[in-house]
Design a protein around this nucleic acid. Sequence first.
DNA 1: AGCTAAAATGTTTTT
DNA 2: CATTTTAGCT
Length: 806
Amino acid sequence: MDIKQEFLRVKRRLFDRVYGERLNPEQCRAVFTTEGPLLVLAGAGSGKTTVLVNRISYIIKYGDAYFDDTLPDGVDENTVEALKLALDMPVSEIEEILPRFISRPCPPWAVLAITFTNKAAKEIRDRLNSAFGDGELAESIWAGTFHSVCLRILRKHCERIGYKQGFTIYDTDDTKRLLLQCMKELMIDEKRLNPKVVQGEISRAKDSLIYPDGYEITRDPRSKDIKAVYGLYAKKLRENNAMDFDDIIMHTVSLLENEADVREYYQNKFRYVLVDEYQDTNYAQFVLTKLIADGRRNIMVVGDDDQSIYRFRGATVENILNFDKTYPDATVVKLEQNYRSTTNILSAANAVIGNNMKRHRKKLWSASGDGEKITVKEASDQNDEGRYIVERIVGSVYREGRKYSDFAVLYRVNALGRSIQTAFTKSGVPYKVIGDMGFYDHKEVKDMVAYLSVLANLDDNLRLKRIINEPKRKIGTATIEAVEQLAVMNGLSMYSVMERAGEFPLLAKSAERLTAFVRLMESVRERAKLPSELIEEVFVSTGYRDMLLEEDPVVGEGRRENVEELISAAREYEDKMREGGEEPTLLGFLEEVYLVSDVDKYDENADAVVLMTVHAAKGLEFPVVFIAGMEEGIFPSDKDGESEDALSEERRLAYVAITRAKEKLYISYARQRMMYGRTILGRPSRFAKDEIPKELLSVDIPRTVPPRMSAYGHPAASARSTVAPEFSREMRRAPSVTGMKETRTRTAASFGVEKLAPGTRVKHGIFGEGEIISSRDMGGDVLYEVGFDSGSVKKLMATYAKLEKI
DNA sequence: AGCTAAAATGTTTTT
DNA sequence: CATTTTAGCT
């Protein structure tokens, strides 16, 4: 008997048993193939994260053991016999034995996992944490977004590329301000050249690693100006010791390209590189991962070309489509079994995406049953749509015992979220909106952050200008301009000019006020160290708080609360760092502010319906999903032209939206919609109307009388025409059982709601206790007017509000 | 300098 | 429509 062959055979069978218990054969292959380039085409819901986590923990525990075909020292016949016995043992025992025969585990710090969101990175760390029961181990893995990983590298080596420690990150808003400044300086009329175009062009250039010098002047006369702006903008960023989002990637690439020792250090350090959501990487990110992984060539990328939805941000699907050309020796694994959705939902998704050309052919399948049909709802307008969604959710919570957190409402554009929010607010159903205006967008929060930025980076002229006269310190535009000019002339930062204001005759009149500001900043710095203390100190000693309280007491109070929230966010950050055994720093906190998005903070445990864009929903899943605003022109959007590429991207977006649903999917559209102050007529989206097979759909009967005019301007046969004319006659006769029943039985009585008389004391989940002022029957429901003890009076629908008699 | 009131302007999607 | 920018006034 050949001991070596026998050992290898038994070893693999043992691994197959351990991992086969929780993974399918393809997933196992993705886990075990650690050496060399690996492309994992992971369809929606195919257990991608599970594979990533298992692969990392496999690597840390066993290195490349599965495909390692050497015989470890000390393995003899007895060992092989012992291992054979282990084959029949429970998996947990095999897992205990296995490491003893494995010679090459991999230290966790040698693993780099790049994810798309901080949330995904955190999930990986958490799951590794519970797998190993060792927080430190999970922490020493580098897991994060492209931006956070790059930032970590840049903080260490930024001097090499001409940046000072403590450099600032500029968000889109800062970028815009700075660009406008550049254009003004170059005397480029923003009427003639839209700053947004410039911003987009520069961003795309950076995504493609094109520097100002290399920016090509084309026949387009604007390109000359854009190049000039780009050059000045880049110069100003450096002067301010600041980077925009794109710089974070671009500068890391140039660091690694130009500094051989740094490059080699990381190439050596990272034995295994894993990249999630590879279909959404841009050229710069492609180069970056290639650079880092070129040392060991152990690069694994996971993605789904059908879910590439960030073209507008420079993502190129080609990265994933051509992976096997970049790495000809790449192993390709396809994950096509979906563990998330019912067959009906998957069939719809497959049908829609099937209309796209240019993709890796694959077909998702699911072992779960057909499930419910997809419900399509034609609403008369956006309010009707909102009410419908709320009503369905409430009904489902009552009848099926679902939790609010089981539901998600997705839409193409944030603007659509407003009308839906209104419906939720009226009903009292708890909900959470992800994205749109985050609280970091509030002026007072931005101001506080600007103060912190200046404290961390005195070269940051942009942010300095933001706060120099906020609150008012009698430093006017004339003075600021003078300081700015002196700074340019003397090669100094504005801050240092202000520090020495007395030396400049030009500033004679304002010198006292300028140095007072500098003294103020210095005193803040002396008195506080931690981010939370710094904010508190800034808030009080700059007089910002008093300013807020002096203005509108209601508005001011809200703003003060926002600042308080920022302070507690800082405290949270500090606690988190201390827990991880790290030192909380101002820079660290600022990074968090800029890089941690709203979705990252989404908490699936809070019992609330979640509202967000389809983009934000990527990577998430929900038992019940509503896709709202499924209208031509909105979804698919016509904002980016009607080109095939644009439409394909919209279709992928629809695919992402559909595949978020596990059990039940609703699609709704409004016949007319108020947007930007005018009413527009809508037609159902082709994705719903033409591309999803009819047999998967059930069309819902409108709950309200449709408006006199149909979408096409024909008089609708109002009362009788209860079904969208766009859907086939045959379907009208046979609406799904659920569709019929739910609509018909939706009365107050069926929800077990009794009509409460005025004067009754009631309790509400959110508003607290109060007294019923009036009650009125409304379409099988009861509308109450309730005066709450807090002093507010609300109008509430009985079925929605869940009032409790007390 | 700083306020108010009128006018303009814009809304994909995001790290 | 809603917010932001600007002009004009004090």
